[in-house]
Nucleic acid binder design. Structure first.
Length: 718
DNA sequence: GACCTGCTGATTTTT
DNA sequence: TCAGCAGGTC
């Protein structure tokens, strides 16, 4: 064992070795892109195990479940399965969900609590808005969800939100937050943010529980620390308080989840929080060519707020990057497909190649082009299997088996398949539940006490109650997949989709759903429906990426985090797309967009392609575009420009769009815009070009104005 | 209560 | 462009 430890350390450079063999106490590892971060993490965990630290005392928090699985696999090859299996590894959400299962009753939930995903939260808010008589034109359910989630990520309660509210809108939001929380609790449900908040609440309210977990997690590791939010930060502080063995790994230059509440200050100010922390910088890049790294470095230097570091590599010089200038998104996709074929003709395989984009919507054209060219591809993310309508229906039924208090699920499937329970019946039920202060489920059981209900509705409700009860009882005695299959048949859901002749695919999906459940039942030593549901709820987009096959990978820049490919295409380098529209005039958001491009560039090992289209369809309508300002930040001599025959000839110097304000993407007559002084208005007409581009805008308060776009910082509201 | 149709808003990224 | 929703009709 000692020999292999020596051997292990021999594979590391001095900085890596220092990190791996660091003793106790807080440790900050600033790991540049491609600097062997995962290797350091896995080796350090293996090192601790070698030194005799029990595996169950080590907690490693990763950004995705897939990352956790991969790390566990790698540790397994170092220390064997027995030890590796007992490590606590997973995302913040899945680890905390597990803790909360064990402690739920202390917080007034049962261990069977349901996890609401984004769609469920939105559905609940839509309900609440309707209940409170607020139309969707006043407040969008998704906007409310965002606001509440932002508050929760900053650990603000509805009381605090209400106390600090100054506008009627803010007061209303606080009220909605209160009602939302109330109903979640009544439904025995938690949303994603609650998994973090409730864990903190648990630790703060029950010191003995906190102490137990502090003792258990003597060594804590956090990967991608730059993307943790306030709540995660607080939870970590609590857990690490006793032993202070907190090792965080990250790269501030790769922080790309600000919009989700990630706070880059967590990593930048780690040393202030832990003054005795050791800082180790991993600056040698093992991934990319010198040229790719230089390009990334030049770009990121335009950002102000960052930890100073210098990334270098011993790798070869490599080829310069290629910039593809294309006519429109279809042409862009075709050019990329051609380029892919050319790369493959020179000995690359499809799986060496990734095509990255800013928004999921961009995948459409790329998929079409791949299909036309006969290029095999895998799409990461997008609409996942578990978000399909028929699967969500089935999941709702299954969730009710575990937690019948879940009203959101009841309201989803009460009348699926149609069984004569319409809006009126549902309204009676909800009113009754409200009057009695009980759940929908309890109201259903007491439906005989609701005089307004018709006889047939009552019969149906009784039938449903009996059905759920019967299959709940069956759960313990038979294999899960068998029970669920019979249950879904008994609900009529399977027949419903089976008999829809026009849409056989939906029924097939349901079959697949039952098949995955069967697979889970076989593989898990102690299968429970509740654990299965939790796994699905906390599955990330990238977790669902199919295993490596010989295919090109298509995904968003966000999904590419942590991955690497010999050849990388980054598409849509256009003002308003990358950087995305609303970020253009917000310095912090612009910096995040720049980091996003940085992440993309640093995924490439050998060859990088960038591309933009001169026109792009938005809402099905072609719109002229401007090249991304980021292109003007890159040294033009490092880019080989390749114009598509279909593209309009351009001067090879890319206009520095930061200086001469171009017509903004999306700006056209009829569009709503916001002006910093005049407020919201509607564009009536556009005239002039380049520096002299003007717009006539009619503002609701300030009237009609002629604005020189160079000066007026108009924000397109769509 | 079921079904049809026309309108609207979505395109930022996701645990 | 299109899916999902609201509102209207049978």
């Amino acid at each position: 064992m000692a020999a292999s430890l020596e051997e292990l350390l021999a594979h590391l450079n001095p900085a890596q070795r220092e990190a791996v063999t660091h003793g106790d106490g807080p440790l900050l590892i600033v790991a540049g892109a491609g600097s062997g971060k995962t290797r350091v993490l896995t080796y350090r965990i293996a090192y601790l195990l070698w030194r005799g630290v029990p595996p169950q005392c080590i907690l490693a928090l990763t950004f995705t479940n897939k990352a956790a699985d991969e790390m566990r696999q790698r540790i397994m090859t170092l220390v064997g399965a027995h030890h590796a299996q007992r490590l606590w590894m997973g995302t913040f959400h899945s680890i905390f969900a597990r803790i909360l299962r064990a402690e739920a009753t202390r917080l007034g939930y049962t261990a069977d609590y349901t996890i609401y995903d984004t769609d469920d939260s939105t559905a609940l808010l839509r309900l609440i808005l309707r209940q409170m008589g607020i139309g969707s034109h006043v407040l969008e359910p998704t906007a409310v969800r965002h606001a509440i989630s932002r508050a929760k990520n900053q650990m603000l309660s509805w009381q605090e939100l209400a106390a600090s509210a100054t506008t009627p809108r803010e007061r209303l939001l606080a009220q909605l937050y209160q009602e939302y929380d109330h109903q979640l609790r009544a439904n025995n449900a938690m949303d994603f943010d609650d998994l973090l908040l409730n864990t903190i609440r648990l630790f703060q309210s029950f010191p003995e529980v906190l102490q137990r977990y502090q003792e258990r997690f003597r060594y804590i590791f956090v990967d991608e620390y730059q993307d943790t939010n306030r709540a995660q930060y607080v939870a970590l502080r609590l857990l690490a308080e006793r032993y202070r063995n907190l090792c965080v790994v990250g790269d501030d230059a790769q922080s790309i989840y600000r919009w989700r509440g990630a706070d880059i200050r967590n990593i930048v100010e780690f040393q202030r929080d832990y003054p005795d922390a050791t800082l180790i910088r991993l600056e040698q890049n093992y991934r990319s060519t010198k040229r790719i790294l230089a390009l990334a470095d030049v770009l990121i230097r335009h950002n102000r707020y960052q930890i100073p570091k210098r990334l270098w590599t011993d790798n070869p010089e490599g080829e310069p990057a290629t910039l593809l200038i294309c006519a429109d998104e279809r042409d862009e996709a075709t050019c990329i497909a051609e380029q892919i074929q050319r790369e493959c003709a020179h000995g690359r395989s499809y799986s060496d190649i990734a095509v990255l984009y800013r928004t999921n919507a961009q995948s459409q054209a790329l998929e079409d082009a791949c299909r036309r060219a006969g290029i095999p591809y895998v799409l990461v993310g997008g609409i996942s299997f578990y978000q399909r309508k028929e699967i969500k229906d089935a999941l709702a039924y299954v969730r009710l088996l575990v937690n019948p208090a879940d009203s959101v699920s009841w309201l989803r499937v009460l009348n699926v398949p149609p069984r004569g329970i319409g809006a009126t019946t549902i309204e009676h039920l909800r009113t009754a539940a409200q009057t009695w202060g009980c759940t929908l489920w309890e109201a259903m059981q007491r439906c005989d006490d609701i005089p307004a209900l018709r006889r047939s509705a009552r019969d149906t409700l009784h039938h449903l109650v009996a059905l759920v009860r019967r299959f709940r009882d069956a759960l313990g005695s038979q294999p899960l997949d068998i029970v669920v299959l019979e249950y879904l048949e008994a609900t009529g859901l399977l027949a419903h989709y089976r008999e829809q002749d026009d849409d056989e695919e939906r029924y097939r999906n349901l079959e697949r759903f039952v098949a995955t459940l069967a697979e889970y039942t076989e593989q898990s030593p102690t299968p429970t429906l509740q654990e299965y549901l939790q796994q699905i709820a906390l599955l990330s987009e990238t977790d669902q990426a199919p295993a490596a096959s010989n295919a090109v990978t298509l995904m968003t820049l966000h999904a590419a985090k942590g991955l690497e490919f010999p050849v990388v295409f980054i598409t849509g380098l256009e003002q308003g797309l990358l950087p995305i529209g609303r970020a253009v005039n917000v310095p912090e958001e612009l910096e995040e967009e720049r980091r996003l491009l940085y992440v993309g560039i640093t995924r490439a090992q050998q060859k990088l392609y960038l591309s933009y289209a001169q026109s792009r369809r938005r809402w099905g309508e072609p719109m002229p575009t401007m090249p991304s300002q980021f292109l003007s930040e890159l040294p033009s001599e490092e880019l080989v420009v390749q114009q598509s025959p279909a593209a309009l000839p351009v001067r090879l110097r890319i206009p520095a769009s930061g200086i001469s304000a171009p017509p903004q993407a999306g700006l056209r007559p009829g569009v709503r815009v916001r002006h910093p002084v005049f407020g919201i208005g509607i564009v009536e007409s556009l005239s002039g070009n380049g520096q002299d581009c003007r717009a006539v805008v009619r503002f609701s308060t300030a009237g009609r104005k002629l604005l020189l776009l160079r000066y007026a910082r108009l924000e397109v509201l769509e």
